[in-house]
C-alpha cells in the first residue's frame, strides 16, 4: 500500500501504468486546497493476467479537488479490477471520475466506484462516469457504482453503461471502403478520446493512441 498525504495547497499528478500483481494500491489523504489528478492506464499486454487497483482517497481539508481519469484494454484471459473509494469528509470539495474500459476475448473487468459524501460535507460537487465496451461475446465487465450521500446541499451525479461497438457505424464506415479492423480502431480511438484529452499533452495522447491500437492489433 502506498500512503500519501497531499499537503495544503499542493498539486499532485499521479500516473499509473502498471497494475499487475496488485501493485497499484494507493491510500491518499488530501488537505485543504490540494488538487490530485490521477491517470490510470491499464494497457499492459501480458502483464499479469490479474491485477487489482485501489484508489482510496479522502478529502480531509476543504476546497480540495480530486480528478480520476482512467482507461483500460483487457484482452486474452486478463482479469483487472479497479476500485475507487472517494470520500468527501469536509465541505466544498470537488471530484470527477471518468473511467472507460474495452474488454475483449475472455477478459474480465470490474469497476467498483464508491463515492461517499459525509453528513457535513456540504457544497460537494462529485461526478462519476464509467463507460465500457465489450468487443467479444465472451468478454465481461462488472460495474458497480455505489454512492452514499449524507449531506443535502450537494451536486452529485453518476452514470455507468456497458455496450457493444455500434454496428450501424461499422457498416457505414465499411460502405466507404474502410476495413472493419480499421473502423473498429477509429471507433475505439473515439471512445477513449475524452479520457486522453484530460492529459493536455497532445504528444503523449498520440503515443497512447498508438499503444491502444497496438493492444487491439
Amino acid at each position: 500500500m502506498n500512503d500519501v498525504i497531499i499537503h495544503k495547497g499542493e498539486k499532485k499528478h499521479l500516473i499509473i501504468t502498471h497494475v499487475a500483481d496488485d501493485s497499484a494500491q494507493w491510500r491518499i489523504r488530501q488537505e485543504a486546497d490540494s488538487v490530485l489528478t490521477v491517470h490510470l492506464f491499464c494497457l499492459e499486454a501480458d502483464a499479469g493476467t490479474t491485477g487489482d487497483v485501489l484508489l482510496d482517497i479522502e478529502q480531509i481539508g476543504g476546497h480540495a479537488e480530486t480528478y480520476i481519469y482512467g482507461l483500460g484494454i483487457l484482452t486474452g484471459k486478463q482479469r483487472i479490477g479497479v476500485r475507487t473509494h472517494v470520500k468527501h469528509s469536509v465541505p466544498d470539495g470537488k471530484s470527477n471520475q471518468l473511467l472507460k474500459f474495452a474488454v475483449r476475448d475472455e477478459a474480465q473487468g470490474a469497476f467498483i466506484g464508491e463515492l461517499i459524501v459525509a453528513p457535513h460535507a456540504q457544497h460537494t460537487e462529485a461526478m462519476q462516469t464509467n463507460r465500457n465496451v465489450l468487443l467479444s461475446p465472451t468478454a465481461t465487465m462488472h460495474t458497480q457504482p455505489q454512492l452514499e450521500i449524507y449531506a443535502d446541499d450537494v451536486k452529485c451525479s453518476h452514470g455507468a453503461t456497458t455496450g457493444q461497438i455500434d454496428e450501424s457505424a461499422l457498416f457505414y464506415m465499411q460502405q466507404r471502403g474502410i476495413a472493419p479492423e480499421e473502423a473498429r480502431r477509429l471507433l475505439l480511438a473515439a471512445f477513449f478520446h475524452d479520457v486522453l484529452t484530460t492529459l493536455n499533452e497532445p504528444e503523449v495522447e498520440d503515443r497512447l493512441q498508438r499503444k491502444i491500437a497496438d493492444r487491439l492489433g
Binding site: 450501424s168 457505424a169 457505414y172 464506415m173 466507404r176 471502403g177 474502410i178 480499421e182 477509429l186 473515439a190
Partner: peptide
C-alpha cells in the same frame, strides 16, 4: 444512406482520409 449514421468522436477528416486512402 437514407439515414446517415452519426459517429461521435471520429472526425470527418480522419474518416474521409481512411476511406480515400483505402480506395
Amino acid at each position: 444512406f437514407q439515414y446517415p449514421v452519426e459517429i461521435p468522436g471520429v472526425s470527418m477528416t480522419n474518416f474521409m482520409r481512411a476511406a480515400v486512402n483505402a480506395k
